[in-house]
Design a protein around this nucleic acid. Structure first.
Lengths: 341, 341
DNA sequence: AGTCTGTGTGTAAACGTTTACATTGCTTTT
DNA sequence: AAAAGCAATGTAAACGTTTACACACAGACT
């Protein structure tokens, strides 16, 4: 093995017989140097296997070409999808995305944001809106562009790219009502530290309230977003008297779990009980019956968010919000309530 | 708004009435400065809201405290899981993980690796082993520690953290044979650019060959890892004459798709046809019947890989490989073949 | 022939850290 | 009481880039 020190601009400059400034220009503003010179530089770069030193560059340009995203967890398909789409868009824009996870914990989220800022990210993507004021102050003090995603509030003080969770949940509940159900229960995700989950509950309440149907424990239960919790919750709900004829779930994972729970409780879906989900992930069509659910354009949202953030960073665009529409996908898991009711 | 320039080490030093060296030491080697001095520094840091400049630090220390991971896609639950686990471990070690995706494309993977190297990552995690020599040369020229994960080869020239895909697939095929099946088909993932998929095929071949059962088209079909492709492939297989009594799938997603496809073809699982998967993701227990599959300890592998890479970077450990065991989880989707056979 | 404009290149200063080395003021040893 | 050692701090150089400014030289005007 030869020496192990990476070649620097100086090395390239010496080899090409030019100054470091010319090398730098050849690489960054190629049309500012004579083609002939540029060729010499490029040759030297290739021969030495030179790559610019990230730290040096970041130091002087005060830009890292990095953005951060803080999501609750990669293990939820909706975030995985959205992130993948964002990532593709950022990569196309020459920017690297750093992903951090908060596990739905506000304290941890703040910590992750601090870490990302310390790494010099040029911009930030955050999920939802609910977080301490101090976090927003920190972002504004640093003057770092950021975007709230997966939610949309027309009256938000910060730019959002997402959809109206409450409205979508209301629409779903209305659909359930329109199918004839009157005894409706809900399995929600944990609402602490998750404003999307809370909004979905609120949306369902809106719809039910309009028909004077209450939604409260024990017909409203809060559980983590897992298959098992969905199953357990469903069994508990189905043991109630009177038994609900429809269960609205906070997401598709819980709904798939509820499906399994219902089966284990000896009830057929949708004959004995209807079950609906939210998000329309692959899982929704993997189960039998397939889930009636709310389709959320996660990928499109991710791409749009990335695109907008890039523009904010480049200052070619001022902060704005983008709203996406959702729509209900009717599948086998929702039908009319059983005759007896 | 006041001025927008971030405070530097100098600002802190001035405010605390010490030199920049002392501030730096207070932050990085706290026991090298008098508690009294340290307190003054910490106060100044807090008052100014100082955070170290990433570029400056990276420039002089030639370390970024960053590692890169290149995976095929975040949208496959096994990678999402494993990454999440790695991430947690890296975070605990004060290191940020950069994730890039290759979409199972070698060219793109090489490109992503170059990008990560250009960002000065201190180490790298790569999935599988199959990639051009030039990539390995590039890594070795830079002297960057790296790990191959999700595979294990006792004779690999590079350190791996993973499991024996071929052996696991062989064991699964043997299990299928032990259940009495003799007409066995396989739906594999795309083997181009995916050595794990290829090894799983090889493993199934091993087991079948031992009983003189061939595995070849049309009984062996290669499809992307999607629900729909799994379903289509299953329908095609089940239309063959003679019809296979068991279908071994390259992963659980394809298996869940095959389950649906079988149902659509009017066949009951496992009565008419048995289906088995690979990975044991949540999906495996969400479907009905639940999938017999190979449990792979993705999270443990991820954590172990991260831990080892951190040690390699710190040079407290020399490269070694870690092998994880897999085991077959017997569930409802595999039973004896139908009587007629 | 002299001035002007423009293009291509070089010089050198900055960016914010870390750290080897020098310095200071004590405490311990002889 | 002088010498030696040690702990705490300061001084200043180095890391690899980018970029403002200076400069040289060509061709196009007067």
């Amino acid at each position: 093995m030869g020496t192990n020190t990476a070649p620097t601009l100086h090395d390239v400059a010496r080899r090409a017989g030019v100054s470091t400034a010319t090398v730098s220009r050849s690489l960054n503003l190629p049309d500012r140097v004579r083609p002939q010179t540029r060729a010499r530089v490029e040759l030297a770069v290739a021969e030495l296997g030179y790559t610019p030193h990230f730290g040096g560059r970041a130091l002087v340009s005060n830009r890292t070409n990095t953005v951060g995203a803080v999501i609750p967890t990669m293990e939820n398909a909706i975030f995985a999808r959205g992130l993948q789409a964002m990532q593709d868009e950022f990569t196309a824009g020459g920017v690297t995305m750093l992903v951090a996870t908060s596990y739905y914990d506000a304290e941890r989220e703040a910590e992750q944001i601090r870490t990302l800022l310390a790494r010099g990210v040029d911009g930030l993507v955050l999920i939802g809106q609910a977080r301490p004021d101090s976090t927003y102050q920190m972002l504004q003090a640093r003057n770092i562009p950021f975007l709230l995603v997966w939610i949309y509030h027309s009256d938000s003080s910060y730019p959002c790219v997402g959809f109206d969770n409450r409205g979508a949940a209301r629409a779903m509940a209305e659909q359930v009502l329109a199918s004839g159900h009157r005894r409706v229960a809900m399995i929600s995700g944990l609402t602490a530290g998750n404003d999307r989950a809370a909004e979905r509950v609120a949306g369902v309440c809106d719809a039910l309230a309009a028909r004077d149907i209450p939604l409260e424990p024990p017909y409203l239960v809060e559980k983590p977003y897992t298959l098992d919790d969905g199953g357990e919750a469903a069994k508990t709900l189905l043991a109630l008297d009177p038994r609900p004829t429809a269960i609205i779930c906070g997401n598709d994972v819980q709904a798939a779990g509820a499906l399994r729970g219902s089966r284990e409780a000896g009830l057929a879906v949708p004959r004995d009980v209807s079950i609906v989900g939210f998000d329309d992930i692959d899982l929704a069509v993997a189960v039998e019956p397939a889930l009636t659910t709310v389709r959320v354009p996660h990928r499109r949202m991710g791409r749009a968010a990335a695109k907008l953030l890039l523009q904010l960073i480049a200052k070619v665009q001022s902060p704005e919000s983008i709203r996406f529409d959702t729509r209900i996908i009717q599948r086998g898991s929702l039908s009319a309530p059983p005759d007896g009711y």
